[in-house]
Design a protein around this nucleic acid. Structure first.
Lengths: 195, 195
DNA sequence: TTGACTAAAACGAATGTTCGTTCTAATCTT
DNA sequence: AAGATTAGAACGAACATTCGTTTTAGTCAA
């Protein structure tokens, strides 16, 4: 039936995407060959090209699904919290949680340099998530929660430390899970911009 | 004479390195072919292999010269400043200055993923510079300049915002030069950890 | 319920190209 | 002259992609 057809096609796609995000983040996009993906996903070359068109299509599909997921998560945070303070903290908690539970997801967004093979996506990739963060801080400035300053600098101050910890964690330099550092880094972050 | 020989060999090496850092940061390591480097540097294939052994050797030489340069700069900062506060600010000033004057240098260190082709260098690449920063903060904690907390978190708080601004600037999202943001981000950074 | 028909999906061997590297000859430098 | 350096053509391996075929799933007539 329709359901079973849909399920089967989604499976092939998702098996490829699962294998690809793992391989791309472990060995890099250019070090990952189509045969690698065939081996790791169990899906054949022909099928892969049927679903994604070309190798870049796999990376693009991955990227788009992660961007969409981030957008939804940010919107949910906006809805569920009333103050800039709560929202910013929730964003950091979210990013920490993703880093611990699905490190490949965070690695893919931070490390895979789309600039190198999808130049037109580079600005989207780097600026879109940070724009959300900047807007959050900016609205906090309007309500007086955040002291008055350049909103870009304020956003960098609030989220820069946490993002740095995420980088260190993914590089294997932090041995304890990010949650252990949450209160301390949040204290630093908010202290640096609170009115 | 020695001088002219030295000059000529250094020229070939440096012409290759100049072309390589430009190409690697613009299009990525794997998108840059040896013929690309030959074209851009004006040095022939044979010469390149004579000087660097293989393609990775070019990246390694670049990396090593930049690491050495960073080490020297950090040591100089340690020598020329007495307090953690002054040292940390000097580091941020240094990184901002390099980003503005030689963006390829900063791009190469931040963006070129050595993990993908020099796995053994990845830890050096990511941890070494940050270890200096952590030690700076740690010594400031010993003297009471910096409030007591996990030194890794404190270092992330002090330098995270500035590093974020550097990323944004290299991505073309900040239109004004980094110097314009120095005082504000430094105020945030130090406020977040000062005793 | 069966069995022919259709369309989508999966397959994997074959192809043409690109790339890093090697090799041999030529050219400087001292 | 001799050693270091440069040159660029040639090589072989690895890669992304294509294509003709097979399999699977859904539809519908009788």
């Amino acid at each position: 039936m329709n359901a079973s057809t849909a399920r089967s096609t989604r499976n092939a796609r998702e098996q490829v995407l699962d294998a690809a995000i793992r391989l791309f983040t472990q060995q890099g996009y250019f070090n990952t060959s189509i045969p690698d993906i065939v081996r790791e996903s169990g899906i054949s070359t022909g099928s892969i090209y049927h679903h994604f068109g070309d190798k870049e299509g796999i990376a693009r599909a991955l990227f788009e699904s992660l961007v969409a997921r981030m957008e939804r998560a940010f919107d949910a945070i906006d809805r569920e919290h009333a103050t800039a303070r709560e929202r910013c903290r929730a964003v950091i908690e979210l990013l920490f949680r993703i880093t611990e539970d699905e490190p490949e997801v965070m690695s893919y967004m931070l490390f895979v340099k789309h600039r190198e093979f999808m130049p037109e996506m580079a600005p989207v990739c780097s600026s879109r998530p940070f724009r959300h963060m900047r807007e959050m801080v900016e609205r906090g400035m309007a309500t007086g929660e955040v002291r008055s300053m350049d909103p870009m600098v304020a956003a960098a101050a609030v989220f820069g430390g946490a993002l740095r910890l995420i980088n260190l964690r993914l590089d294997g330099i932090l041995e304890r899970p990010l949650g252990d550092y949450l209160d301390e880094i949040w204290d630093c972050a908010w202290r640096s911009v609170s009115a």
